[in-house]
């Protein structure tokens, strides 16, 4: 993404982005080990609520899908399903080196290499694991991006839906599974 893109939002969108930036509700997709870094981020030591952030129960309510760590093909299917249930504007924050390049699972037969092939990641937080300071820093970055209107992953996903869908199907075969356990 190019950072100095021209800002062509109207006033209402700017106000809306101000609200979005200051009230970040997250759905934590805690598949990997990164989830353990979130309780300290949330509780009294780092207290993410002062930035207006908080966990929500379902993807329908959430603005940010936080993916904390490696994604196997099985979990990726569920993550895609969850992401498509979210309401725009929606953002994805990917967490840890596994989502960037597969991390220590780079050669696994079941774990994907890079997440942004399949879903529009707005922000990566690198590290294995990223410490709470880094997480907070990353979210500060996200807030700035939303305020400036640069976190446009969801628009990107809409515009390049075919491309994402093709990548998903290439790697996963099918996204929606229907077998004897899912009837």
């Amino acid at each position: 993404m190019v950072l100095d893109e021209k800002d062509n939002r109207n006033v209402w969108e700017k106000i809306g982005d101000y609200f979005s930036a200051n009230s970040i509700w997250m759905k934590w997709y805690c598949t990997g080990c990164g989830a353990i870094e979130l309780p300290p981020t949330m509780t009294s030591r780092y207290d993410m609520e002062r930035l207006g952030m908080g966990p929500m129960a379902t993807p329908r309510q959430a603005d940010v899908l936080l993916i904390t760590g490696y994604l196997s093909t099985k979990t990726l299917r569920r993550v895609i399903y969850s992401y498509e249930q979210m309401n725009s504007p929606r953002f994805i924050v990917a967490f840890g080196s596994c989502t960037i390049n597969g991390g220590i699972y780079y050669d696994s037969y079941a774990t994907i290499g890079r997440l942004d092939k399949y879903l529009p990641v707005d922000l990566y937080i690198a590290g294995c694991m990223p410490r709470p300071e880094v997480v907070m820093n990353g979210f500060n970055e996200l807030i700035k991006m939303i305020k400036k209107g640069q976190a446009k992953g969801w628009k990107h996903y809409q515009e390049n839906y075919e491309w994402y869908k093709k990548n998903q199907l290439d790697s996963l075969g099918e996204v929606i599974i229907k077998d004897e356990f899912h009837e």
């Binding site: 993807p59 299917r77 399903y81 969850s82 309401n87 599974i177 229907k178 899912h182 009837e183």
Partner: peptide, 21 residues
């Protein structure tokens, strides 16, 4: 609002295809 199918509902991200269940 966007109209979605009734089965497209939050199931803890699990795929469920049987309406009765």
């Amino acid at each position: 609002s966007k109209k979605v199918e009734l089965m497209d509902t939050y199931t803890s991200a699990e795929f469920i295809h049987t309406r009765e269940l």
